[in-house]
Computed example of a mutant assay.
Amino acid sequence: MSADRETHHTGDIDMSIWQGRVDPEPDSLRWHQCVRPWQTNATHGAALLGFASDAGVKRNHGRSGASGGPWAIRRALANLAWHRQGPVYDAGTVTCEGDALEQAQQCLAEGVASLLDAGQLPVVLGGGHEVAYGSWQGLAKHLEAQCRQAPKIGIINLDAHFDLRDPAHVRSSGTPFAQIFDQCEARGWSFRYACLGVSRASNTRALFQRAKTLGVLVREDREVTTARLDAIVRDIKRFIARCEHLYLTIDLDALPAAEAPGVSAPAARGVSLALLEPLIEIIRDSGKLRLADIAELNPDYDIDDRTAKIAARLVHQLTLTD
């Protein structure tokens, strides 16, 4: 594995993707005019870090192509209107070469930890959902150095899948949260995990049982409806209240295939963006969000850049306030 753009060297960060429309009216900036290359000692803000990996998806027998996700998200984000007050930085992309997934995850963890140490909000652009293990490792490394006691980290996963498969067989895009549980046990930390948008048809009985055993907050896709949204919001707020730090991970296959066709495993039902956005805003505005990532964008199967545009909108929403 090698990192084609080291996250801490601005000279290796490719800013050529940040281009688009320039409007003549005042106060009409777009993202491509505002994103800056990451540099040490930058003002506190949000930092985009790519994770170009297909290895976990391939190991999980999914359709490959997610390694192109980081560039597709940046391209869709470039032309969006700018509404932030604080800065956003491009911290480059960690690339997984071949099947060297574990090395790539370690490199990602180091990049995330460095950004957190510098006071940034990292937003990681995947890549398969194996991104989650690398992202969490980075947060854990940062908090281990900051906290005297075991940190109370809450993981909120918007996903059609638990991704709790047994990593003893093979570590893949289907195992990150089982791997995180193992790491929590090894450290003596509590495992606080919420998975919203789960498809019963796409997760075995064994996975549902494991989620129950581990005390996972589960809300299935069929439960996340307009009529039940207030109840889901209360559930999330209670979950957040028990946590000191939040890690939000969004697997785009949580959305219906009609909205997000460009993913590794399109959803037959899914949860619409209109229902996910209010949940994301509650997490964002909690004051506890330390890290977010977006997983499973597969540009090879996208239609009219629909999925990339959703991913870009999600980044826009996550970073809308400082």
Rank of each mutant, 00 (worst) to 15 (best):
Y133T: 13
G98H: 11
V112M: 09
H129V: 11
G127P: 13
V131M: 08
C96L: 04
A132Y: 01
C96W: 03
E110S: 11
G92S: 04
V131N: 11
H129G: 10
P151A: 02
A140Q: 09
Q137H: 07
G111M: 01
V112I: 12
G119W: 02
V123E: 03
I153Y: 01
G111Q: 02
D99H: 06
A109H: 06
H142F: 15
E97V: 15
S114M: 13
L115N: 04
L116K: 04
Y133G: 00
H129R: 05
I153D: 10
P151N: 02
A113W: 04
G154M: 06
L108A: 08
G128A: 10
V94A: 00
A145M: 04
G119N: 05
G138M: 06
G126L: 03
G134H: 03
V123I: 15
G98W: 07
E102N: 14
G154P: 13
D117V: 12
G138F: 04
E110W: 03
L139K: 01
L125T: 06
I153N: 12
E144P: 04
G134Q: 01
G128D: 08
W136T: 08
A113M: 08
G92V: 05
G126V: 05
L125W: 01
G98L: 08
E144A: 10
G98F: 10
Q120W: 10
G111K: 00
G111I: 03
G98K: 09
C96V: 14
G98A: 14
C147A: 04
Q146M: 09
A109K: 06
H142E: 05
G134L: 02
K141L: 09
V94Y: 01
S135R: 01
L125H: 08
Q120C: 06
Y133D: 08
C147V: 01
A132I: 05
K141I: 04
V131G: 00
S114G: 12
Q149C: 06
D117A: 15
Q105A: 09
K141H: 10
I153M: 05
A109M: 11
H129C: 13
S114R: 09
G134F: 02
Q146R: 15
C107P: 00
C96F: 03
G92W: 01
W136C: 07
Q105F: 02
L139F: 03
S114P: 00
E110F: 01
A109R: 09
G127Y: 07
P122C: 14
A100Q: 15
Y133F: 13
A132C: 12
A104L: 11
G111S: 02
V112D: 04
G119A: 03
S114A: 15
A150H: 13
Q106I: 09
A150L: 00
S135N: 14
H129A: 08
A109P: 12
G134M: 07
Q105S: 07
K152Q: 11
A145D: 08
Y133E: 07
Q146P: 06
E110Y: 01
A109F: 10
G111C: 04
H129Q: 12
E144N: 14
E110V: 08
C96Y: 03
T95M: 15
